[in-house]
């Protein structure tokens, strides 16, 4: 039975969204590969998913900032996965990033450069094979730059544009690229923040939404996990810049 199972690779497997997404795929019968910098933490999630679902779960070390090591990482996987989901994200500290440019560069590279380069490797291999799906978790923060988080937002905007372009490039070959904008999610990254209930998703909701968008019969290109965000972001997007720049957001 296991021979026929599809395989997914989850990049950023120690995050709450990554854990929930890998869990959703495992529950749907997929083999799961977890990639993370902290292998020990990822193994904890791998054991959890394997015990709960009975799925096979492997762990692979990956540093999203080491682009030189990426080809070796991809070729070192036991199998080229059917789907790759990248949930890597680092909010950083906006105020610090305004004065410490190393910190700003780390936020840019973690949210934009690293994920884009890595997914580029998978895109080329999927094209050569003629099949494969790519899911990138970006952010509503990338839809419009705000004074309180534009370093992170700018990086996510770049990643959103990368995914959009990649989708455009791969579509004629029948390969899928899905952009996910989760909105607020109750995770360790947002612990301690005041989050509005209606706009805030649980990690399990994000996982289920990703699985449905990427693997469901009615595939989607760009999803907001809670549909209400689409309206919120179109309102925010519609505010004229002369007014927007004076708002405290």
């Amino acid at each position: 039975m296991t021979e026929n199972r599809k395989t997914m690779l989850l990049i950023g497997a120690t995050s709450d969204i990554g854990r929930a997404t890998a869990m959703a795929y495992a529950e749907a019968g997929w083999q799961v590969l977890l990639a993370a910098r902290n292998v020990q933490s990822a193994q904890r999630n791998a054991d959890d998913i394997a015990t709960r679902t009975g799925a096979g779960v492997g762990v692979h070390a990956l540093d999203i900032l080491h682009s030189d090591a990426m080809p070796g990482f991809v070729d070192g996987l036991p199998v080229l996965p059917d789907t790759v989901v990248c949930v890597v994200g680092e909010m950083g500290d906006q105020e610090r990033a305004q004065v410490e440019f190393d910190h700003a560069a780390m936020v840019f590279r973690t949210n934009f450069e690293g994920p884009s380069l890595l997914l580029g490797h998978f895109a080329n291999r999927f094209l050569a094979r003629g099949s494969g799906s790519i899911v990138g978790v970006s952010s509503v923060a990338g839809d419009r730059g705000r004074g309180t988080n534009y370093i992170y937002g700018a990086a996510k905007a770049g990643f959103t544009a990368f995914l959009s372009g990649l989708r455009n490039r791969l579509a004629p070959s029948g390969l899928r690229v899905v952009t996910v904008k989760p909105g607020f999610v109750r995770t360790r990254m947002t612990a301690g923040m005041k989050l509005p209930g209606l706009l805030t998703a649980e990690p399990a909701e994000v996982g289920a939404a990703i699985l449905a968008a990427a693997e469901g019969k009615r595939g989607r290109d760009v999803i907001y996990v809670r549909p209400v965000w689409r309206g919120v972001m179109s309102v925010i997007g519609a505010i004229p810049e002369p007014i927007f720049k004076k708002l405290k957001l």
Binding site: R44, N45, D47, D48, T51
Partner: peptide, 8 residues
């Protein structure tokens, strides 16, 4: 937060 299963 200590909510992981380890082995079965």
């Amino acid at each position: 937060g200590l909510d992981r299963m380890k082995a079965f």
